[in-house]
Amino acid sequence: MSSDNPKLRCRGLWKVYGPNASHFFAQSHDKESRIKTIRDSSHIPAVCDVSFDVPEGEIFVIMGLSGSGKSTVIRCLSRLIEPESGTILLDGENLLEKSKDQMIEIRRRRVGMVFQHFGLLPHQTVLGNVAFPLKIQGLSISEQTNRAQQMIDLVGLNGREQSYPRELSGGQQQRVGIARSLASDPELWLLDEPFSALDPLIRRQMQDEFLRLQKLLNKTIVFITHDFLEALRLADRIAIMKDGAIVQIGTPAELVSNPANDYVAEFTRDVPKLKILTAGAVLSEVNPQKISAPLEGNPTIENTTTIDQFLPILIRSETLNVANNAGDYLGSISVLDVLKKLAEETIS
């Protein structure tokens, strides 16, 4: 999946908390020994040598337990925190080399961010909050209002423009946060655990909402969560973090079928496999020579369809043709293939 010109490229990112954070980077070290030196001098290595690419239009989810350094990574991406070392390329420009004023400009136009606890201005109405980034850019009042109103409609808050944040529910407040972060139409959209403070039911609803928005807007997204299921639902690709380092990067199906180590496997164990495994993944189990041409009369499904989605069709016709999104025939799968795949996943 890595392309040569990703929208966002992060390489060798380090962030250390403590009084002499920068001095660990004077000499070159390999990763492990540097982490050890940092720990030994009672500093906190919050982010250790993190690298990843996010192509345009992708939802890249960073998942990890509390304290694993997710917020620190995303705050480095927006330079709310200065990393000790590394490069962050947005469209090939290194953000870490930008001056303060250039960063202000970039934040105004190209990057938007959503916060876990919403970070709304208590003294401003919904409209005022959403219009705030535009006000800061010095747009005229009518432009501000127009654009903000569009955003408010987009997140489904029309009618509440004049409410204050304290008069809204958590879900509504986060809608305001989302609308605000989208107001100046950023290319890169950063979300730090946007739904973690919400009830499960609302969370679910907001996730659907989020996917709907992304279909409409096609942003490049870095999304932080500590909830593996949320990551699976939303992600094009997921990075799993532990103790400041990335353990594995891959699509949801890759993570579930090929966890890099026990740590990742622990997350995937309780995941409902039917919702993760795709026709493509089942196909990889099948001996390709077995069926070389599409069987006439059998329904064709896309290779990204998950088992729970194609299961009803499979029950009826026993064998299915699988094609990619261009329509090229890839192979056929039978009920037995699916069972084999599931058995292997569950036992391993």
């Binding site: 927006s78 709310l80 202000i104 934040r107 990057v111 961010m113 916060f115 970070g119 201005l121």
Partner: peptide
């Protein structure tokens, strides 16, 4: 977070 949201809105 309120402050950070201000920074991310591009406030000087």
């Amino acid at each position: 977070e309120t402050v950070e949201s201000g920074i991310m809105s591009g406030a000087s």
